[in-house]
Amino acid sequence: MTWTFPNTLTVLRLLAAPGVAVMFLYFHRPWADWFALALFLGASLTDFLDGYLARAWKQESKFGRMLDPIADKAMVVIALMVIVGYSSMSPWLVLPATVILFREVFVSGLREFLGDTAGTLKVTKLAKWKTTAQMVAIAVLFAQGVFEHYLWSSTAGMDQPMVDAILTGQEEDLHGLRWKLTGMVWSGHAGLWLLWLAAALTLITGIDYFRKSVPYFKD
């Protein structure tokens, strides 16, 4: 294996995957949300950079082609586990997350089964869009967690009638409750829509990979 800069970026992305979860073990919210979001965004950026630099510098390698999808899947799977774990377990969130997790495990199993013929399941452009949609959706959902925590921490010491009066404009909004609520609602809705889009693309590419592998199931 040739240790190139693009391969180094891929390895760093793989190592960053568990780091997203570790942020919530060692830091209190909202710092955990901020650090997880920053780490996830930085790692997602390397997903574009490592492939681009490998092609531009003619440093493409078998190691990079093997490790790149593994790093992507680790990032997505661990981040989704964290988001679902800290959510209210809404079916609107759990269902697309389940579709994504199932597909990623299923396709990984297909590639392992195919062995030397796994090249049949080459990464398509649609699969790359799928990964992009997943990462954008997860980043937006992490942002929702930031808005949500700041909103509830700003209401500390207030009773519900006071909170309602501020949000309806009857009382002065000294703590920015309205813009924090707006940020939480919009990022939550946008994150869910993007996650459902990612789940749809994930399902389509999963079916495509399965269809391509069917001929190899025949004894």
Score class of each variant (00 low, 15 high):
Lys180Asn: 07
Leu141His: 03
Met184Tyr: 15
Glu60Val: 14
Pro96Gly: 07
Ser44Glu: 10
Ser44Gln: 14
Val107Lys: 01
His175Ala: 13
Ala56Asp: 10
Lys62Asp: 15
Pro215Ile: 08
Lys122Ser: 15
Leu101Ser: 11
Met75Tyr: 00
Ser108Val: 03
Thr168Glu: 11
Val140Trp: 01
Leu15Glu: 08
Asp50Trp: 00
Pro161Asp: 11
Gly64Gln: 01
Glu112Ile: 13
Val76Pro: 03
Val11Tyr: 09
Gln59Ile: 09
Ala17Trp: 01
Gly119Arg: 10
Trp152His: 15
Asp164Trp: 05
Gly169Gln: 07
Ile204Gly: 04
Tyr86Thr: 14
Gly206His: 00
Ala74Thr: 01
Ala143Tyr: 07
Phe40Gly: 00
Pro91Arg: 08
Ser108Leu: 12
His189Phe: 14
Gly169Ser: 08
Tyr26Gly: 12
Leu93Trp: 07
Ile207Lys: 07
Leu121Ser: 02
Ala74Leu: 10
Leu167Ser: 01
Gly188Glu: 00
Val99Arg: 06
Gly115Thr: 05
Arg178Ala: 10
Ala74Lys: 02
Leu177Val: 09
Trp57Ile: 00
Thr8Asn: 09
Lys125Ala: 10
Trp186Lys: 12
Gly183Leu: 09
Lys128Leu: 04
Asn7His: 06
Tyr216Met: 13
Val82Tyr: 01
Met135Cys: 11
Asp72Ser: 08
Thr98Leu: 15
Ile207Gln: 03
Ala143Asp: 06
Ala199Lys: 00
Met75Gln: 09
Met135Val: 07
Trp196Asp: 03
Lys125Ile: 08
Lys62Arg: 15
Tyr26Asn: 09
Phe217Lys: 07
Pro69Trp: 00
Glu60Trp: 02
Tyr52Gln: 10
Arg211Gln: 14
Thr2Tyr: 12
Asp68Met: 08
Phe102His: 07
Met89Gly: 07
Pro91Phe: 05
Val99Gly: 02
Thr155Lys: 14
Arg65Leu: 11
Gly64Ser: 04
Tyr150Asn: 14
His28Gly: 13
Leu15Gly: 03
Pro6Val: 05
Asp164Val: 09
Ala165Arg: 06
Leu41Arg: 01
Phe63Arg: 08
Phe102Gln: 05
Val99Gln: 03
Leu45Ser: 05
Phe147Ser: 09
Arg211Glu: 11
Leu141Ser: 06
Thr132His: 09
Lys130Phe: 04
Asp50Asn: 02
Trp186Ala: 13
Gly19Ser: 04
Gly145Ile: 01
Ser44Phe: 13
Ala79Val: 02
Glu172Tyr: 07
Ser61Met: 02
Gly191Asn: 02
Glu104Ala: 06
Glu104Gly: 00
Phe24His: 07
Phe63Cys: 01
Gly157Pro: 04
Arg13Ile: 01
Trp3Phe: 15
Val82Asp: 01
Thr202Ala: 11
Asp164Cys: 04
Ala36Gln: 05
Leu167Ile: 06
Leu121Val: 04
Asp219Phe: 11
Leu12Pro: 06
Ala32Tyr: 00
Ser87Gln: 01
Met66Asp: 14
Arg103Asn: 10
Pro6Lys: 03
Tyr26Met: 14
Leu121Ile: 03
Thr124Lys: 05
Phe106Met: 12
Leu95Cys: 10
